[in-house]
Nucleic acid binder design. Structure first.
Length: 302
DNA sequence: ATTCAGGTGCGAG
DNA sequence: CTCGCACCTGAA
């Protein structure tokens, strides 16, 4: 019988520092702040986040990334190599952006958004985070996710917690989940957690099966629709052809590519995949960031 | 007080 | 497949 998971304290250990070369135009700040992740915080000095049960402080110094880790809950993958992989420092951004720049619209946008890398997130954390993101705003999503970590995760020190395991969320009371401002999403989160905890859903298996098939598996989950499924496929399952369509992307695509004609998310997604292929996800991230930061001036038609 | 926010589920045409 | 509507909740 496995031990009951409990809120135990992570191990204290000496800080470990490492660095890695990142080829231009990699931009850590943009990568972490363009909407793919909810737990990382970026300030003037650098970024802080928890990856695989380990707390990290990361800073970019030109072509170099420096990372310090202090508190870890142990386990595999608790080294720098895993962090570099998470941050996708190996993504061939120069080549990707050169290819995207063949599109005249993206060529105009890229100077404002260059440096984004599509990360490789943990599918479980990514899935729960984006279920929570539905019909929600970003500050509140972050509050909800942090609430889940604080209440169901493992304390790493300095007030930081790991993301909870599927088992912990599967056995949670709805009232406890609702206390994390989940609202009507609370039962969705618990049902998804139960599917993973019961082995009815094997997220790692989704890496090895065809795109459409993985998509169908995700869509069968409560609280997971087209947009959330595409986010998990792109941000965690490394499917570069995924193209999440939210209100911002829909607005941007209609204005920039469809001559202002209305189009359903389905039509937009297929259109984008046909045009950008395996780089659809990257195109999506640049269009999204441009729309969010007002570069496109979508609200002031000329 | 009213509205909005990174959608999804559901029934109906 | 598209359309319309309800939906937790806190911040503006």
């Amino acid at each position: 019988m496995p031990p009951i998971p409990s809120l135990s304290e992570g191990t204290r250990e000496a800080p470990r520092l490492a660095s890695v070369r990142v080829p231009p135009p990699y931009d850590l700040r943009r990568t972490l702040a363009c909407g793919q992740v909810f737990r990382w915080t970026v300030d003037g000095t650098g970024a802080q986040g928890v990856v695989r049960g380990r707390r990290w402080t990361v800073r970019q110094d030109g072509r170099r990334l420096l990372a310090v880790t202090q508190d870890g809950a142990g386990g595999p993958g608790s080294d720098h190599a895993f962090l570099w992989r998470h941050l996708a420092v190996d993504a061939p951004l120069h080549r990707i952006e050169r290819a995207l720049a063949a599109d005249p619209i993206l060529r105009r946008i890229l100077p404002h958004t260059t440096g984004i890398a599509v990360m490789r997130q943990d599918p479980w954390e990514c899935l729960i985070s984006f279920v929570i993101s539905a019909f929600n705003n970003i500050p509140k999503v972050r509050m909800s996710v942090e609430g889940l970590c604080r209440r169901f995760g493992v304390l790493l020190g300095d007030g930081h917690f790991t993301f909870p395991t599927p088992e912990r969320l599967a056995e949670a009371r709805l009232s406890a989940l609702r206390a994390c401002i989940l609202g009507y999403r609370a039962p969705y989160v618990r049902e998804v957690a139960r599917a993973v905890a019961d082995r009815a859903l094997d997220l790692e298996r989704l890496r090895g099966i065809p795109y459409e098939e993985a998509r169908e598996v995700l869509l069968a989950l409560p609280g997971v629709g087209e947009k959330v499924a595409e986010c998990v496929l792109l941000f965690a399952l490394e499917r570069g052809e995924a193209f999440p369509v939210d209100v911002w992307i829909q607005r941007a695509m209609q204005t920039l590519y469809l001559r202002g004609r209305r189009a359903s998310p389905l039509v937009i997604r297929e259109w984008a995949r046909g045009r950008f292929g395996r780089l659809a996800g990257y195109a999506n991230q640049h269009l999204f960031l441009a729309a969010r930061t007002g570069v496109l001036r979508l609200n002031t038609p000329t």
